[in-house]
């Protein structure tokens, strides 16, 4: 560890945190911020998973990063230049109850942003993505929302989740953006984010490239196995093994095996959402959406149907 870096100063705090939502283009945002010259975004990881007590894959397994000293967290930013703005995005911070006040205790001046997506679309995307990754996945969407409502439904209750942040942070320090705007006009989307973060405008070639899109495994069994192995390492505190596996090339072999197993996505009949489910979920989210409309003073009627 390089101890001359400002990040080792006990008063160092990162400047911004993206708190969510998952499956709302946050990986695309991370890629762009990583390239931005005024910003230092960690190279080693996209989601640092520091303030959450449980893992986003199943919303159950304990997060072994939680409780680690600040030096561990700040080490991700050791290569940040003096004038660069620092931050990370971990989408599980949004739905978990304790994160808002823990982040506030860490840095009451931190800038918070969230990208929100149509609650049902986002939830359905999460279901497909979990199945694709073999961790915390279910065969059908109905099974997913019944089996793990914390992971698939609570994550779309944006008003309930954001309220916790609005309760502790001044509203000038919270920026809410929308996934639809990424698709509609990604430059305008980024400009809004840059203005909020206080950095210059920067539009790399990556701007129009899709990141982390949905694919489908050729062998679901392989995907499930790799997913289980990963969770096994995390839930048994075996992360110390990772550098060795990295060095010996095991990790990159697994990564390429995983990559070659993926092919273009084609939805099966089984995976489609039942019409009755969609109708039910519209009712489920309605009140939360209406409260969100009031909180943000924004019309979200396109989410209510």
């Amino acid at each position: 560890m390089v101890s001359s870096s400002r990040t080792m100063d006990k008063d160092f705090r990162i400047d911004f945190i993206g708190i969510g939502a998952s499956k709302s283009a946050t990986s695309w945002v991370a890629e762009i911020l990583r390239l931005h010259p005024d910003i230092y975004y960690p190279m080693d990881e996209k989601e640092l998973n520091y303030f959450n007590r449980i893992m986003p894959q199943d919303f159950k397994t304990k997060n072994h990063n939680h409780g680690k000293p600040l030096e561990w967290y700040h080490d991700y930013f050791r290569d940040a230049k003096e004038e660069q703005v620092t931050g990370e995005i971990t989408p599980v911070y949004l739905p978990l109850e304790e994160c808002a006040k823990d982040i506030h205790a860490y840095n009451p001046e931190v800038k918070i942003f969230a990208v929100l997506r149509h609650p049902i679309e986002r939830s359905f995307s999460q279901f497909k993505f979990s199945k694709q990754n073999g961790i915390g996945g279910y065969d059908t969407y109905e099974e997913a929302i019944k089996g793990n409502p914390e992971k698939f439904l609570d994550t779309s209750m944006y008003y309930r989740n954001l309220k916790r942040y609005f309760d502790v942070f001044p509203k000038e320090n919270i920026k809410v953006l929308f996934f639809e705007d990424v698709k509609k006009d990604n430059k305008a989307f980024l400009k809004e984010l840059y203005d909020f973060l206080g950095v210059s405008e920067f539009y790399p070639e990556l701007t129009d490239k899709k990141v982390n899109v949905g694919l489908q495994p050729k062998s679901q069994g392989l995907v499930n196995f790799i997913g289980k192995a990963k969770m096994f390492i995390h839930s048994n505190g075996l992360q110390f093994m990772l550098p060795v596996l990295q060095k010996t090339g095991v990790l990159s072999a697994v990564k390429s095996l995983k990559r070659n197993n993926m092919t273009a996505r084609k939805e099966t009949k089984k995976e489609e959402m039942h019409e009755n489910t969609r109708k039910r979920l519209k009712d489920y989210f309605r009140k939360d959406i209406e409260s969100l409309e009031q909180l943000l003073n924004k019309d979200l009627s396109h989410w209510k149907d």
């Binding site: 929302i145 019944k146 409502p149 439904l153 209750m157 039910r280 489920y284």
Partner: peptide
């Protein structure tokens, strides 16, 4: 009870 249980979870956190 799927529908009723879903709303019970949403409003009272019981699963």
């Amino acid at each position: 009870f799927v529908e009723d249980n879903e709303l019970l979870y949403r409003d009272y956190g019981i699963k």
